[in-house]
Design a protein around this nucleic acid. Sequence first.
RNA 1: GCCCAUGUAGCUCAGUCGGUAGAGCACAUCCUUGGUAAGGAUGAGGUCAGCGGUUCAAUCCCGCUCAUGGGCUCCA
Length: 571
Amino acid sequence: MDKNLETVRHSTSHLMAQAVKDLYPGVKVAIGPSIETGFYYDFDYEPGFTEEDLEKIEKRMHEIAAANIPIERKVMKRQDAIDMFTKMGELYKVDLLESITDDEVSTYTQGTFTDLCRGPHLASTGEIKAFKLLSLAGAYWRGDEHNKMLTRIYGTAFPDEKSLKDYLTFLEEVKKRDHRRLGKDLDLFSISDEVGAGLVIYHPKGALLRWLLEDFERREHLKRGYHFVVGPHILKLDMWKKSGHFENYRENMYFTKVDEVEYGIKPMNCLSHIMVYKSQVRSYRELPLRYFELGTVCRHEKSGVLHGLMRVREFTQDDAHIFLRPDQLHEEILGIIRFVQDVMAIFGFQFEMEISTRPAKSIGSDEDWERAEKALQEVLDSEGLPYEINAGDGAFYGPKIDIKLKDAIGRKWQCATIQCDFALPERFDLHYTDSDGLRKRPVMLHRVVLGALERFMGVLIEHFGGKFPLWLAPVQVMVMNITDDQGPYVKDIFDALIREGVRAETDLRNEKLSLKIRESVVKKIPYMIIAGKKEMESKTLTVRVRDGGELKDISLEDFINRVKDENTTRR
RNA sequence: GCCCAUGUAGCUCAGUCGGUAGAGCACAUCCUUGGUAAGGAUGAGGUCAGCGGUUCAAUCCCGCUCAUGGGCUCCA
């Protein structure tokens, strides 16, 4: 982020802290950094804050800003700072100071408020021009759920009023694109508390969208040498014990009992794929073996994290497990990255990559982890692809490359991931016969391209703002009459369209044309065919195009060809 | 799971300082057959999230549960 903007925001967070301390004596301040979207400050305040408090605080902030109080930096010995903050009763600051190793620390003072802070800050509160407090939230001290929960106040700040206003307008735009809003408006899906939290019910148009994605996926996987497999939803508990899931992933799993035998409902698809591999003796000649499944998994996500389609408890991954020789790792990983690149280009997503390394809870030897991490890193390095390291964030069985999409308005979403696994082949004693006749251990890659179809759909809805490209639009063409006389003509057009595989609907209601058009526009349907007396007599079409313009006097045949062409080229 | 807020018709929301509720859109019927973003009339529709408590009386007050939203932690 822009250094200046960062300073503005950081100073605004101090301004807020000062206002809060003014208004609510006894509040303890924790930390208050600038963040990508603004700033926050965490407070320890027993009664907690309410929305009304935000207004009061904001008002006080304006007063302090108007008073134009100088912000002064002071350097002191760490021990002196500890003494000072102890005296002030700011125990969180003392806690922070105790984990700082430097001899000297800096503080910033504005009027009656002094904060431990590295800085930099603006010279005076009068330089803070444009800010707004946005929301309240709970946040654990130091981000650890075992610690006390503090109250966090989020706000945003900009160097000038116009930028602030633009940002608030942007937030409105984000709201309009919200997939939960659009999911309802476009009648794509619902989530019902009668059915259960985090469980998605697809309505016809949403199910069609999903089917289109699945169809796309199957074709793309076939093109790249994947084999389709299908496994069961529940597998015996012993399998999950053997794989390490029971040990490392139990809190996310559901269990059930059938005839006194314990089963685990799958949270991942790998075990069945492993069983397919194990079903025969494998030769080095047939590797890599790529098993693909649109596999539905159930994960017990904590109730507080569920979010529309983005975070659910049952979802379907475009999952594959690739069994290969160690010498094939580089090429295969690269192949997956190319696959992801191809697919994301089609949807119009940019993306960034991260490598996640060994987490605390994990299986496998140190050497294997090192080999696996190296394999992933080496591919990205050799291709000159930039990435960041996300330490300790790997899967329990192996490190991974996480791919974060950037959508149309710049937000990032984690969808695709590539995980390198030496551990499960070991645990399930997988092998192949190598060219020298010896039994050897294959490596396993776990990978998804779109990730979870639910999340991907959510991202797609927001990315396109509900305005799907023709090839993904559940309804591609709406055919409407002007008066009842054109009913049969509309039906003829409709029949011809669906016969040719065009996804069409008719609007034959006894309503004014302007109403029908409005509703089609609201539903963001790519094409509207308007059939009145003129068109019926001349046997032509008048087509209104979603993105502007009109096709006049076009023949039905030409129109169908146009739609088909647009569909195959995925424009 | 934790913190805060919210839950009223299919949807978006009013409302009742405690006396069992209202609008717009959607839906149904009728009138209207209208050429590019909302024609008109009438009607139907709600155990005010669920369960307890306080009260003569609870949609409203209190408690619990569930769900949703904003976050924290976690993740595809």
